[in-house]
Simulated assay, not measured.
Amino acid sequence: MNENQIPITSSELANLWMAYQEKTMIIRILTHFIEHAAGEEKEFLLSHFQQSEKHVAKIVNILQSEGAATPLGFTEQDVHKGSPKLFDFYYDMIYLHMMTKLESSLYALFASMSYRKDIDDLFMAFTAHSQAMNNTTTQFLLQKGILARPPFVTMPKEVSFVKDKQYMNGFHLFSDTRSLNTVEVSLIHHTIETNLVGMQLMIGFAQTASTQEVKEYLVKGMNLSKKIEINLGEFLRQSYIEPPATHAGKTTTSKTPPFSEKLMLYNTSLLTSFGLGSNALGGAFSLRNDLPAKMTLLANDIYSFARKGGEILIKNGWMEEPPQIEDRKKLTK
């Protein structure tokens, strides 16, 4: 049997379905950004837009060849063309930088869960494109003086091993307890950076939401991002390191929604899931007991926020159901 004639697995179907949701969403977000962009900035946005459209077409082709229904995802009805600019001063590139970082992680995971060669190749291509675009946006934002680099450190001159259990203790002022190591700093920096971008996104979404329940939920998301930044930023300050910050990428005063509430909630849900994963990673790789403890508390807040978002999506009929495994229990009744 030809490799591509082997039926796709449940995990491959699930990942194609999730990729379709994310890809169609990013196309709608980029539609608004491109409408208000110019020059090199517009070229980068168009490049990701066009490549995402090609990726969606490939997903549809595989699903159709398997006799599977094409998901609805997000359509032109989820973006309102002609709406005033919602974000200013390179936020579109800051957002693309964050989303391609998310995509790189997501599609690399999907590739590792693929067994049929054409699907594995597909997700590897998705990953490569997202990584390339993330590098492009990184260099662009650095050149514009917008992206804050992680702190520089003195290079180690020798290999050392931990000899004292005190290494795992949290920070205490005027004690011998250690400061953060570079692994911990890198994970905290990453989490703060993404939450600063997410906070501006929540502000823009909240001020254009048309229903009170969605507006209040997005305001909670804004406050949660701020809480995470403040709590984790304090760990950096205790080690005399300033948390990342940027003067760019602010929300305009527009109250006209460029996106549907369904799209805004899905984008929020996607970033919340990403935040839970980053939080778990940060806690797992830290050997200072106070950092995982703080991240566990924050994870509880993130999970509660995510669950509430799911409830709103379901209540309004906005949550598209993933492909379902056949219920074998029905055969016994």
Rank of each mutant, 00 (worst) to 15 (best):
M1Y: 11
N2C: 06
N2L: 15
E3C: 06
I6V: 13
S10A: 15
S11Y: 08
L13D: 07
W17C: 11
K23F: 09
K23H: 09
I29E: 05
T31Y: 13
I34S: 07
E35P: 02
H36M: 04
A38V: 06
G39H: 08
E41N: 13
L46I: 01
L46W: 00
Q51L: 09
S52I: 04
H55E: 14
A57H: 05
K58T: 03
N61I: 00
I62V: 13
L63T: 03
Q64L: 14
T75P: 10
H80V: 12
K81N: 14
K85F: 05
F89M: 00
F89Y: 09
Y90N: 13
Y91R: 00
M93P: 00
I94F: 01
L96K: 00
M99E: 08
M99V: 15
T100M: 07
F110Y: 15
M113T: 02
S114R: 07
S114H: 03
Y115V: 05
I119Q: 12
L122E: 04
M124D: 07
A125T: 12
T127P: 01
N134R: 07
N135G: 13
T136Y: 09
L141K: 00
L142H: 06
L147D: 01
A148P: 11
R149P: 02
P150K: 01
P151R: 06
P151I: 09
M155K: 06
K157W: 02
S160Y: 02
F161Y: 11
V162Y: 03
Y167I: 10
Y167S: 11
M168T: 13
F171D: 00
H172L: 14
F174L: 08
D176H: 10
R178T: 06
V183C: 04
V183W: 05
E184I: 04
V185C: 01
S186A: 15
L187H: 12
L187W: 01
I188P: 05
I188R: 08
L196M: 12
V197P: 05
M199E: 15
L201F: 14
G204F: 04
G204P: 02
A206S: 09
Q207V: 03
T208Y: 04
T208V: 06
A209H: 04
T211F: 10
T211Y: 12
T211N: 12
E213L: 10
E216H: 06
K220S: 15
M222I: 02
N223C: 03
N223A: 10
N223I: 02
N223W: 00
I230N: 11
L236W: 07
R237F: 05
Q238H: 14
Y240S: 15
I241K: 06
G249Y: 02
T252K: 03
T252Y: 04
S254I: 05
T256C: 11
F259H: 04
S260E: 00
K262Y: 03
M264E: 03
L265G: 03
N267S: 13
S273N: 10
F274I: 00
A280N: 07
L281R: 02
A284Y: 09
S286K: 00
N289G: 11
L291H: 07
P292R: 09
P292M: 13
P292E: 10
D301V: 04
D301N: 08
I312T: 02
M319R: 01
E321Q: 15
E321G: 06
P322A: 15
P323F: 10
Q324V: 13
E326I: 05
E326P: 03
K329S: 14
